[in-house]
Nucleic acid binder design. Structure first.
Lengths: 163, 163
DNA sequence: ATATAATAGATATGCAACATAACTATAATA
DNA sequence: TATTATAGTTATGTTGCATATCTATTATAT
């Protein structure tokens, strides 16, 4: 490979004055960094219940929508059906949910949470709410509403064309 | 495995009325869904420049901070040093950046963008700004400020303890 | 009625993001 | 000068996410 030359006559950056204002000027970058930081804490909270983000969301959806089909669930969570299968396998192995045969459609399964599943949901959901309060408490009501509305608009912007 | 039984007497959820209000009540979930939707669009924009999110961020940082060391860069981007190595390898192979020996510390490399690197940065950064305008234009000034402030508070909440 | 197409779920597989342990070479320090 | 720490690298593993393809079953189209 021929040696690519850097632009000449550039002052070196010293350790002290590293700047990321170009990236900080991008909304998406801030969104990613904030979410990543939040996620570390959330994963720690969920780990007490042997859950990760997708299995937790899955359990929440099944508790809220008993009898749900796997395809419907994958759709609602915006995850691929093959990936949901392994998540459900794990939840079923832990006897948190059941896959019940649907009499009217023998291809499909109706998903339901067991008693243990409901109990785990209650505890985990409350723990997540506590985790959320950690940062939501620092926001003003106006900020919370603006944030909520902004996130919805962002989602709407990209999901309307993307789906 | 003994058959786990679902809770009895539950009305099945019909296709039409699947609800995700429990998840929507969680801020982190909305954040994740919005970011995922945004990311699809962003990746498409970056793909025109043969870039992904981390290589793009890396290039931006090197352009803004010529002479930067790899460790400093990994720190600033909050990515692991080993993962940065392969990103830099690829950028160097494309002659977008150079790794220059540092005379005062022969372990270290000073990272600099080549002319091609600067040019790609200019084009890609503008394209990303256009992408961002797609959703930022739909937000009110108040929403934009609240979102910005909220994201910073979220990051502060979790990075102050986490680092 | 039967052939064809579509759907529900599962399996296999691959890529990308991210993390850790351990190595080489240098530099800092005790 | 011996020890420790640091910069970069290599190897490797895990998780998240996507696609192609398979089966069993159901819907539809002639």
């Amino acid at each position: 490979m021929k040696p690519a030359t850097a632009l000449p006559a550039q002052k070196n950056t010293r350790a002290s004055d590293i700047s990321d204002s170009q990236l900080r000027g991008l909304f998406g970058y801030n969104l990613k960094r904030s979410f990543s930081a939040l996620q570390v804490d959330l994963l720690e909270v969920l780990s007490k219940f042997d859950l990760r983000m997708v299995p937790f969301s899955t359990l929440v959806m099944i508790v809220e929508n008993p009898g749900l089909r796997q395809s419907q669930l994958a759709d609602a969570l915006a995850i691929e059906r093959p990936n949901l299968v392994v998540v459900l396998d794990a939840l079923e192995r832990r006897e948190l949910i059941t896959r019940d045969r649907v009499p009217t459609d023998r291809r499909a399964y109706a998903l339901r949470a067991t008693l243990a599943g409901h109990q785990l949901f209650e505890k985990a959901y409350r723990a997540v709410q506590t985790h959320e309060a950690r940062y939501l408490d620092r926001l003003t009501t106006a900020e919370r509403e603006a944030l909520s509305s902004a996130l919805n608009k962002i989602r709407a912007t990209f999901e309307e064309t993307g789906e």
